[in-house]
Simulated scan of single mutants.
Amino acid sequence: MSALPLAFGAPLLTADIRTVPEDFQVDELPAFEPTGEGEHLLLEIRKRGANTVAVAKRLAQWAGVPEMGVSYAGQKDRHAVTTQRFSVHLPKRVSPDVAMLESDEIHVLSATWHNRKLQRGALAGNRFKLVLREVRGDVAAIDARLQMIAERGLPNWFGEQRFGRDGGNVPAALAMFGGRRVRQDQRSMLLSAARSALFNRVLAARVEQDSWDRPLDGEVWMLDGSRSVFGPEPMSEVLAERLARFDIHPSGPLWGLGELRSTGQALALESAALADEQAVALRAGLEAAGLKQERRPLRLRPALLQHQWLQDGVLEMSFALPPGCYATAVLHELGAVNDASQAYSDS
């Protein structure tokens, strides 16, 4: 993230995050209510210092089912306290004792029957509470930057989690496109990383010209909270009003087969941002994999953004983000935030 441009000027702070897992709290916002019937046990679990995949494996062992019988809407950070849903397929509707799951890492908040398997992405968003420690910077300037983010939004970057340790997923994707064989789960991860890298390139070009939240000629629009797109069409007072109230957003490409939908200035910028040798190789690999052209909003507005200084040098922030958006994008606009968990995860 440190290599990406900033939308609001120079960085304002240095700080640490994840000094303890409680400094990074994430709660899934559910997209539906359980039906109370069916053969899928829907578990709401609070985990601390645990990987989502590891918890899913633990659930499979507990239930005596294959790992493919356990699903979740999205992966959550390990070095954090997070709440998320899992579903376990139990065709005989006999649930083992949930108390057997309790540990320092796992606490079951609820267990309810549901009639469908939990699908990836089946959440309304995520609510975050973050605590930054050892904050160094001008308090008034930091307060003003957060207020600006609340009012204007910020660039909708794909976060560093998408790119793996030391950004290694993009080189691995290039190697896969060059013929290296990988497991199916790795393939999906690497395709996502390649797409995300190309999107961030386009967004970086828009940030550098301060057009990430305003239209270019030939803009393709996305409806807020939806994958629906429309345009290009000439700018109008109606579009300007919808843009101002965050009903629509400018968009950038998620690469795949097909022609870019943008035209004019927007098309020229996207083409130029994706013209170097590495970008061309990533584009070709994604097309060969059969992915189709899609779009993603360039702009993100955190909902209910609030902050308070718990004491000198300790800043608490809370906000909610739509699915697929990253809290690290918010932190990026403030300055250099060091992930303190790396010190003990590497040891």
Rank of each mutant, 00 (worst) to 15 (best):
A54S: 15
L334N: 03
F86Q: 05
V20S: 08
D97W: 09
M235R: 01
A80H: 04
I142V: 15
S103N: 05
H332L: 13
F86L: 15
G178P: 00
L109H: 07
R116W: 04
L59I: 02
L260H: 10
L239K: 00
H332P: 09
A175W: 00
R93I: 10
E102S: 04
A175P: 02
V81I: 14
V81E: 15
H107R: 11
Q147E: 08
I106H: 06
A50P: 03
T19P: 03
A336G: 05
A289E: 01
R136P: 10
L43W: 06
D16M: 09
R299F: 00
F319W: 09
D97L: 04
R261Y: 09
L12P: 10
H79R: 01
R46V: 14
D213V: 14
F32T: 00
S345T: 11
V98S: 12
Q147D: 13
P34C: 05
V20M: 08
E105A: 14
M176A: 01
R145S: 05
L305C: 10
E259G: 14
M235Y: 11
S345A: 14
A268P: 04
V202I: 05
Q342W: 09
G179A: 00
L123I: 07
T112F: 07
R48E: 08
Q306P: 08
V229D: 09
N338H: 14
S188T: 06
Q161N: 04
M222E: 06
R181S: 11
R206A: 03
A54H: 15
H107C: 03
V55N: 00
G285T: 01
I149D: 08
E208Y: 13
E219C: 04
T14Y: 10
T112N: 04
W221R: 08
S226I: 13
V229F: 13
A60D: 12
Q308N: 06
W309N: 11
R183P: 05
S71F: 07
A303K: 04
H40F: 11
Q75M: 12
K129L: 07
P250G: 04
D247K: 11
L6A: 10
M68R: 07
A284Q: 14
V220R: 11
A266L: 14
L239D: 13
E105G: 07
I142E: 03
S71K: 14
L12F: 10
S71H: 12
V55Y: 00
P21E: 08
L203P: 14
G36Y: 08
L267W: 04
A193T: 05
P34W: 07
R214Y: 03
Q293L: 06
P30M: 10
E219H: 06
L190I: 01
T19H: 11
K117D: 09
R18S: 08
P155V: 01
L191G: 00
R245P: 12
Q186E: 15
E134P: 02
L305I: 14
V70I: 12
E233I: 12
D138Q: 14
R245Y: 12
D166L: 03
D339F: 01
